[in-house]
Amino acid sequence: MRIEDVDGLRIATFGAGPRLIVAVHGITASLMAWQAVGRRLPREWSLVAMDLRGRGHSADLPGPYGLDRHAEDVLRVAEHVGAGPDAVLTGHSMGGYVAALAGARRRFARVVLIDGGLPLPLPAGMDPDQAMAATLGPALARLRLTFPSEEAYLDFFRAHPAFAGFWSDDVARYVCYDLTGPQGALRSRVVPEAVTEDGRWLLLEAARIGEALHAVRAPLRLLRAPRGLLNQDTGMLPDDLTAPWLARLPELEDEVVPDCNHYTILFDERCVTTIADRLVSGL
């Protein structure tokens, strides 16, 4: 893994091949979400991931946040690393929406949305903050907590329903990368205000996301997890939400990656092998 900073954005490159994938993480994640995928790519490929502003080692970059701002950052990173029209753009969770916005602004060889990217309706009777609390409750709560040690933070994640029964060195590295602060009062690097602003944008700008999906000129692929953020049986993008978009976007390739949840789709070796293949196959 090679690390550098681009205008305050921390980026990491996994692999040494000349062909490039630009990868965008989720709303409370970091570039380390992509380490397992980067390691399983063919030798001719490299994966470039960044910490979005307000996350990881880009946490000190100021707002405003919002998915438009992240898309601008993604395109700036793509230009910096020389990702031309033969590069692949991908995003997981919120990163899928950012990838759709960025992919609508310039051409890539392929845009791959991983368990994200399709507009999410705001539930009836809920405002955006209530909707975020209902879906991201444990993740949002974590941002306000402090932990006495690194091991305590690891234990917090080991007990997370998405990782219960599944653990790996990749998950441990992902978790530890997120920690900052003094011993005895460690906390997540994620800026809570960034998550709140981004979550509101995501829920209130569904029409903008739909317009971006229609404007993407590259082949568009969707990979879905059958289980959700808390390993519940209903995933983030269930069939009833996905079906109307498959009708509107007949060129969209849709695939459910079996036996994974919203998190393990990027960490479980079997699922990651599928993701790596779908990113580059046929290119």
Rank of each mutant, 00 (worst) to 15 (best):
F166W: 01
A159I: 10
L145N: 07
F157Q: 09
H160A: 01
R173K: 14
A152M: 12
A164V: 11
P161Y: 06
P138C: 05
E150H: 12
G165V: 02
P148G: 11
F166I: 00
F163Y: 15
F166E: 00
Y153V: 04
D170C: 05
E150Q: 11
A139V: 09
F147P: 01
G137E: 14
W167K: 05
A159Q: 15
G165C: 05
F163M: 15
A162T: 03
R158I: 06
L143M: 02
S149E: 14
F147A: 00
A139C: 09
F147V: 01
S168Q: 11
S149I: 13
E151K: 13
L140H: 06
W167P: 02
R158N: 08
L145Q: 11
E151R: 15
S149K: 10
E150M: 07
V171A: 14
L145V: 05
L145Y: 03
R173G: 15
Y153L: 06
G165P: 07
A164D: 14
P138E: 05
T146F: 03
P148L: 05
L145F: 03
F166N: 00
A172R: 15
F147I: 00
F157P: 09
F166M: 01
F157M: 06
R144Y: 04
D169T: 10
A152Y: 12
A141Y: 02
A141T: 10
